[in-house]
């Protein structure tokens, strides 16, 4: 895109700056729209599984429900509790929201369609997602209220625990792909299964990692059944209890942007990203743009997330910790040994 702006007669610096800002807007604005629609989809799927109708009043089929909700919270008053730490209280939702958007910078939407095609893309995502915990801790602490504080402690312990196993799972994928760059990881999946299937997930060595990553993604984004941070029966609404108006909406948007990011990571790391599922050109697979494939995969994973939310009861906190530290961590460690051993035997011998 920089070349296009240079051809308009700008100097390189200006062209780069304008191109980057355009790229950021091209990702962030559709992402916000996607978040609004995915909240609607979440409620519809949840309702359908509970044999209800879900949102169906605002707009055709209730499609505009999220926008109505957005308008509603926008017009509300921002209430700051009197004992709250004012600055941090207001910064916390901004951190959550910003961090949720930042990680999208390295997500490839098609071959070459990335905002920042960096060598350490996967590490960047790990780094950014480890920042997400600050929004939660700060909101909990600065609210100066018991429930948010408990929720913040729970959330931070949960996110740090599952980041460990996610890190190890990612190493398995990186070993197979031989790169930290997300585009290179997707390219490594082309024809991975017998030259036919474009996905790491069909590899028997990597499939268990794919399952563990899906579950860890649920825990990392604090979705049901791991939504202990906002367990209504115990903690009212967790760290968001004292928030209202736009500051609450920012948490909401950030949470769903994170969920979408995790769905995208699932699709990219294990199921071929923007590649069509099969590497055969019988049907015109490859004429469909990659972005359509990626979005279809993201939505498929989002459907799984919603499905789980609608059907699985909430975990107890000690069970959550047990799953993370006593089951996922040892298995993912052993799997790294297995994968590197297998690669030493077959690829690097």
């Amino acid at each position: 895109m920089t070349d296009f702006f240079i051809s308009l007669g700008m100097s390189y610096e200006w062209a780069w700056g304008v191109a980057t800002i355009c790229g950021i807007l091209l990702i962030a604005l559709p992402l916000m729209l996607a978040v609004a629609m995915i909240i609607y989809a979440d409620r519809k799927i949840w309702a359908a599984m509970a044999l209800r109708r879900g949102p169906n009043v605002v707009g055709p089929f209730g499609l505009l429900q999220s926008f109505a909700d957005g308008l509603k919270v926008f017009l509300q008053e921002t209430i700051i509790p009197s004992g709250a730490n004012r600055g941090l209280f207001l910064i916390a939702p901004i951190i959550t929201f910003t961090v949720a958007l930042l990680a999208w910078a390295v997500i490839p939407f098609n071959s070459g369609a990335v905002l920042a095609d960096i060598n350490v893309g996967l590490l960047y995502i790990l780094a950014i997602s480890s920042l997400g915990v600050y929004g939660v801790i700060l909101s909990g602490w600065s609210s100066n209220s018991k429930y948010p504080f408990f929720s913040a402690l729970r959330a931070s312990a949960q996110m740090i625990s599952y980041e460990v196993s996610i890190g190890f799972i990612l190493i398995g994928v990186v070993l197979y792909a031989g790169s930290f760059n997300l585009n290179a990881i997707i390219e490594a999946q082309r024809g991975h299964g017998f030259g036919i299937v474009n996905a790491f997930g069909f590899n028997l060595l990597l499939f268990p990692l794919a399952v563990m990553f899906l579950i860890s993604a649920l825990a990392e984004t604090a979705r049901a059944p791991f939504d202990l941070t906002e367990a209504e029966s115990e903690l009212v609404a967790g760290y968001q209890t004292e928030y209202s108006s736009m500051s609450f909406a920012l948490f909401w948007l950030g949470e769903y942007a994170n969920v979408l990011l995790m769905c995208a990571l699932n699709a990219i790391l294990f199921w071929g990203g923007w590649l069509p599922p099969l590497n055969i050109d019988l049907i015109p697979w490859f004429d469909i743009p990659g972005i359509v494939w990626l979005f279809a995969k993201i939505f498929a994973f989002f459907f799984i997330f919603s499905w789980v939310k609608a059907t699985v009861p909430r975990y107890r906190y000690d069970q959550l910790m047990r799953l993370g530290w006593k089951i996922f961590l040892p298995i993912s460690l052993i799997w790294i040994f297995l994968i590197s051993g297998w690669l030493m035997l077959t690829r690097y011998s």
């Binding site: 060598n119 350490v120 590490l123 600050y134 801790i137 740090i160």
Partner: peptide, 22 residues
């Protein structure tokens, strides 16, 4: 040094500073 930079964020910001804050 992009690798070191990412490690700094992952290790210090993501883990050590969280414990400090705790």
């Amino acid at each position: 040094a992009e690798f070191i930079a990412m490690l700094l964020v992952i290790v210090y910001v993501g883990a050590v500073a969280v414990l400090f804050l705790f």
